[in-house]
């Protein structure tokens, strides 16, 4: 009986978006009287940070400060059509739609500011929340004030509409090839484990992981998704199952006492890195992150267990019982 250590690796390519009749996202941005913007989307904020990311994107293009942009979600009656929040698609699809809608707002801002500053729209630039006449240091006006004036003085509705859709790709009957997704993100995970051959218990000691996400529009949110994904994947690899642990339904998991999630003390040291290789199809190059980060950890742990005990476990979760049975079968 011993505590054996092993190290395993797994790599992943993960698509962003789905081939569901084009997988469209649409957005309407409506200005408020004081120059703030409301971004109406049917994508849903469920903790992943889409509210923050879409506000950042709209701010970058319109020049309205990020704290003055409200992303309203959750009401499909007041927001235009969106396929939904799934398939790691929201930042990519909705981000692209927000860029287009923000560009319409930007055009209104520049045309209105041109009148206010008595200059050509082509001679204007937006930075630090203000519209400036290029090369002139004392001639500028606040973007929010421009948006307000557009409504009150120039009778211009300040509304931006945007959509993003990738045409549906059908399968070539000759080759079987199609182009179903918009971009591929990539990742690689290394796990170090210790297997107790007496109890069959697997402990994850350390995880190194690196994900190529195109562009991390909000690095803290991306890192949070990576760490959350690793821990969720660890649960799938080692403890979580909805199936009966024994072949009768009496032993089905019915509560969190049987369906065992990792808790704070189970978390190994995690070294997470982000690599950026912008995709031409993404908003500022961004790709989808959400699901990919849950997927590479389980195979890395399976390979690490294989490295430690010389037996490949082929179904999850790797319970102590499975480890002990595998060790017995292999005569180790």
């Amino acid at each position: 009986m011993a505590k054996l250590r092993g190290r395993g690796i797994a790599a992943i390519n993960y698509p962003t978006g789905m081939n569901l009749g084009g997988d469209p996202s649409q957005v309407v941005i409506v200005a408020q009287p004081d120059g703030r913007l409301v971004v109406n989307v049917a994508s849903v904020e469920l903790g992943q940070g889409i509210k923050t990311v879409l506000a950042q994107i709209a701010s970058e293009i319109t020049g309205v400060p990020v704290e003055d942009i409200e992303v309203r979600f959750g009401d499909t009656e007041s927001a235009p059509h969106d396929t939904g929040t799934f398939a790691s698609r929201s930042t990519h699809r909705m981000g692209n739609a927000v860029i287009k809608a923000s560009e319409e707002i930007r055009e209104i801002v520049l045309n209105t500011a041109a009148k206010m500053l008595e200059a050509s729209p082509n001679d204007l630039e937006i930075r630090e929340g203000r519209v400036w006449v290029k090369g002139v240091t004392d001639k500028s006006v606040e973007v929010k004030q421009v948006i307000s004036q557009a409504q009150f003085t120039y009778n211009t509705p300040v509304v931006g509409k945007g959509f993003y859709v990738k045409p549906k790709s059908s399968v070539d009957p000759e080759t079987g090839a199609s182009d179903p997704h918009s971009t591929m993100a990539h990742g690689c995970t290394v796990a170090e484990v210790e297997v107790d051959t007496e109890t069959g218990f697997v402990t994850v000691l350390k995880v190194y992981t690196v994900y190529e996400v195109g562009k991390a529009i909000n690095p803290q949110l991306v890192e949070s998704q990576i760490i959350g994904g690793i821990v969720m994947g660890m649960g799938a690899a080692l403890t979580e199952t909805v199936y009966p642990r024994y072949p009768v339904l009496d032993f089905q998991t019915t509560s969190f006492r049987d369906y065992v999630l990792p808790t704070a003390g189970d978390i190994p040291e995690i070294v997470a890195k982000i690599v950026e290789s912008p995709t031409p199809t993404g908003p500022f190059g961004a790709k989808g992150v959400g699901e990919m980060v849950v997927n590479s950890i389980a195979p890395a742990i399976v390979n690490a267990v294989y490295d430690a005990i010389g037996v490949q476990i082929t179904d999850l979760p790797i319970t102590p019982e499975k480890v002990l049975k595998a060790l017995k079968k292999s005569g180790r």
């Binding site: 949070s224 760490i227 959350g228 994904g229 690793i230 821990v231 969720m232 704070a264 978390i267 995690i270």
Partner: peptide, 18 residues
């Protein structure tokens, strides 16, 4: 870890909480 052990989180992976 002991104090947080009775509380489940599905999103954060606990690292930011700790």
């Amino acid at each position: 870890f002991d104090a947080l052990a009775g509380n489940l989180c599905r999103c954060t992976g606990y690292v930011p909480i700790v």
